[in-house]
Design a protein around this nucleic acid. Structure first.
Length: 487
DNA sequence: TGAAATGTTGGGGCG
DNA sequence: ACGCCCCAACATTTC
């Protein structure tokens, strides 16, 4: 065997596309041995959640940024394609390596795959180590008093807070010893859309990569953090962090965010906006906790009584929802923001999701699939947990009778209609009091605004009161079935 | 991280 | 001046 000090270490990048606070990379750098960073794209292995279109766009740019950042340290990122169970052993042989480091993932399919990789490599004498880069507290470290997994967000987050601060973030390595190996080019992966190129809105809205993430975090801490608690629910303002896609790809880690927020807010545990914002990190953590403990989360209702819920099939209504043409301005604004930028304000996500599931009675998994394909922050855990929550079949789900009224929500959280006007320009001329319910606007107001309902903007696909009644009846059946089971 | 229906109260118009 | 009624405004309950 060659001199151990010159044997390269493979660092397998996955959802941790950053140099700072990257424990696997930091540990590899610490050894002083050559580092071979690699990213493996696996689109075809059954059971793997193939990234959606918007996420692929992000991945392209994030990998490009990571490649540049690594190159600046003297290290070339190697791109390979295929099932990691085959790709990694091959890489090890080619590189003459004997060690692989990575940061852990928590999706059931990824855990199974990583365990298989680890077992096969260890069986032939290689060293494999994994680290935590993605979570404040890994799912198995947080339990109820009885020692089981948590089912309620508030109890989960209390337990997390009781554990104290996560460790401070690690600095980025200052230099790396490179080890070269041939690989694919990023362009060959064709992650970017062409024919048509629908990514214009994404390019305008985002800067993928670690530097972009750092900038976004700094801007948020200097600006919106202070008023976060009071303003975050208003989609017409830039009052949220918009860090979700950066967190999704690991361009910034939750430990970095945590400590940066504490420093910026100057108070331990954070006051006002800070505590509220950190609690949102807590929702992300809880989603991973749920996915880890319930492997069926992305597809199967956590509450078994939902197995025979009377969902409807309604391709026409689904299309209207997807395209932002339901006739409910707030829902349509959200769906168009999603289509255009790959992101939607969280308050509007709840309202749009509730509309699909409760007003239209279309299965939550259908909405989950659409979000998976269109969100740049599409995350298996958060997406699944939040859809189950809104559908009422999740762990500590919203009760079935909680049905958002898109008009009231609009008047409450978008009182001037700024958000609706931005994304539904055909309603721009309507005054605030009717912009969330154009079908109730007087004739003259519509004419002055150039709105012809059914022509320039759709009439509502369903009547709110009728849809609400239908949903309550459908969900009451589930409740009855549950009671019958209990007897 | 709701909304709607129902109940209660208190001020003011009015006989 | 008194009591009755109406109906906001707010509180509570129900879905």
């Amino acid at each position: 065997m060659a001199d151990a000090s010159s044997t390269p270490i493979i660092v397998w990048f996955r959802q941790d596309l950053r140099l700072a606070d990257n424990p696997a990379l930091a540990e590899a750098a610490r050894t002083g041995r050559p580092v071979l960073p690699v990213y493996v794209l696996d689109d075809d292995t059954p059971g793997t959640w193939r990234m959606g279109g918007a996420a692929r766009w992000w991945l392209h740019h994030s990998l490009a940024a990571l490649g540049r950042d690594l190159a600046a340290l003297g290290c070339a990122l190697v791109l390979r394609r295929g099932d990691p169970r085959a790709v990694l052993p091959a890489l090890i042989r080619e590189a003459g390596a004997d060690t692989v480091f990575w940061n852990r993932r928590y999706e059931p399919f990824a855990i199974a795959r990583d365990e298989a990789v680890k077992a096969s490599l260890k069986a032939v004498g290689f060293t494999v180590r994994s680290f935590n880069a993605a979570l404040l507290h890994e799912p198995w470290t947080v339990t109820t008093r009885a020692g089981g997994p948590c089912r309620v967000h508030s109890a989960f987050w209390r337990a997390c807070l009781a554990k104290g601060d996560p460790p401070p973030p690690l600095p980025a390595p200052r230099k790396l010893l490179g080890a070269a190996l041939p690989g694919d080019t990023l362009d060959a992966w064709r992650l970017l859309p062409d024919a048509p190129d629908w990514a214009g809105g994404l390019r305008a809205a985002w800067t993928p990569g670690e530097a972009g993430a750092r900038q976004r975090l700094t801007d948020f801490l200097d600006g919106a953090l202070e008023g976060y608690a009071a303003r975050r629910d208003q989609p017409g303002l830039e009052a949220t962090s918009r860090l979700s896609p950066h967190l999704r790809f690991g361009e910034v880690g939750p430990r970095q965010v945590w400590h940066a927020v504490l420093t910026a807010s100057g108070v331990r545990g954070g006051r006002g906006g800070a505590a509220k914002f950190l609690a949102e990190l807590g929702r992300r953590e809880f989603s991973y906790h749920l996915l880890y403990h319930h492997r069926g989360l992305p597809a199967v209702p956590l509450r078994p009584e939902f197995a025979d819920f009377p969902w409807r099939e309604d391709p026409e209504a689904l299309r209207a929802w997807q395209r932002g043409a339901t006739g409910y301005p707030l829902v349509d604004a959200g769906m168009r923001e999603l289509w255009s930028t790959g992101w939607m304000h969280n308050r509007v996500r709840m309202i749009a999701a509730s509309f699909l599931v409760k007003h239209l009675l279309i299965p939550w998994q259908t909405g989950e699939a659409w979000f998976w394909d269109t969100l740049v922050d599409a995350d298996l855990a958060s997406n699944a947990a939040n859809w189950q929550w809104i559908a009422g079949c999740g762990a500590d789900a919203a009760p079935y009778f909680r049905i958002f009224n898109p008009v009231l929500q609009g008047m409450k959280f978008d009182p001037e209609g700024d958000y609706v006007r931005r994304w539904v320009p055909e309603l721009r001329g309507l005054p605030a009091r009717h912009v969330h319910r154009p079908w109730e606007a007087p004739e003259g107001e519509l004419r002055a605004a150039g709105v012809v309902l059914g022509r320039t903007y759709p009439t509502p696909v369903v009547d709110h009161a009728a849809a609400r009644g239908r949903a309550l009846a459908a969900f009451a059946r589930v409740k009855k079935g549950c009671a019958a089971d209990a007897v």
